[in-house]
């Protein structure tokens, strides 16, 4: 099997992602955990580039590392900055869940398509048709845009609607545009005032 030299870059990225993931597990300071999530997103964006998914890398870097981190920081400011220590029993329970779920996934690995194989079932189906037909049907160079906007236009319309619905839900829950001056009092008292309006 022919292998790219970029695989060594991949291994470095994977090692860094492991380090970041374990740091997030151990971190109780929420600020650090949220910032490390941003780092994780950026590392995975780098890996997406190595996996030829430049559009996805672009989105992940802008959305995951940018907006996602900002939102989690804002939520952290409104809630708590420190997570409570969890009991050892809970850690063991989590370990059990992870071992069972991970074992099931590892059991399924031999059934996965071969990595990097152009003839695997995943890569020889409709994806190949999109690649071959895009110059005739759509005539734009970026196949991802062609599939996103034209071949799978319904899909994208649904996604846009989901994003819109999410924004409506957030606006309903948190309100918007009313810049409130903090005049004292704690969070619970304010929530009651909010509910009456």
């Amino acid at each position: 099997m022919e292998q790219d030299l970029t695989q060594y870059l991949d291994y470095v990225l994977i090692a860094m992602m492991f380090a970041v993931g374990i740091a997030v597990v151990r971190m109780r300071n929420l600020f650090a955990a949220v910032m490390l999530t941003g780092v994780y997103s950026l590392l995975s964006a780098a890996w997406f580039v190595s996996l030829d998914a430049v559009d996805v890398a672009f989105t992940e870097a802008a959305v995951g590392a940018g907006i996602g981190t900002v939102l989690m920081l804002a939520a952290m400011l409104l809630t708590a900055r420190e997570a409570k220590e969890t009991s050892p029993g809970r850690h063991w329970a989590a370990l059990g869940v992870v071992v069972v779920a991970g074992g099931a996934l590892l059991f399924a690995v031999p059934d996965m398509p071969v990595y990097g194989d152009a003839h695997s079932p995943a890569n020889s189906g409709v994806g190949l048709d999109y690649l071959n037909e895009t110059p005739n049907d759509i005539a734009v160079p970026n196949v991802v845009t062609a599939v996103l906007a034209s071949y799978r236009g319904y899909d994208t319309m649904g996604e846009t609607t989901v994003v819109f619905a999410a924004a409506v839900a957030v606006m309903l829950m948190l309100g918007m545009g009313r810049r409130r001056r903090r005049t004292g009092g704690n969070g619970a008292g304010k929530a009651k005032v909010e509910d009456q309006t």
Binding site: L78, T160, V170, G175, G177
Partner: peptide, 25 residues
């Protein structure tokens, strides 16, 4: 279609940010 996506995504991201940041003193 992309202009439609642009409008929604821009507005949604700003709206969500306003919703959270409007609560932070």
């Amino acid at each position: 279609v992309e202009i439609g996506v642009l409008l929604t995504v821009t507005s949604v991201m700003i709206a969500v940010f306003y919703a959270f940041a409007g609560r932070v003193p």
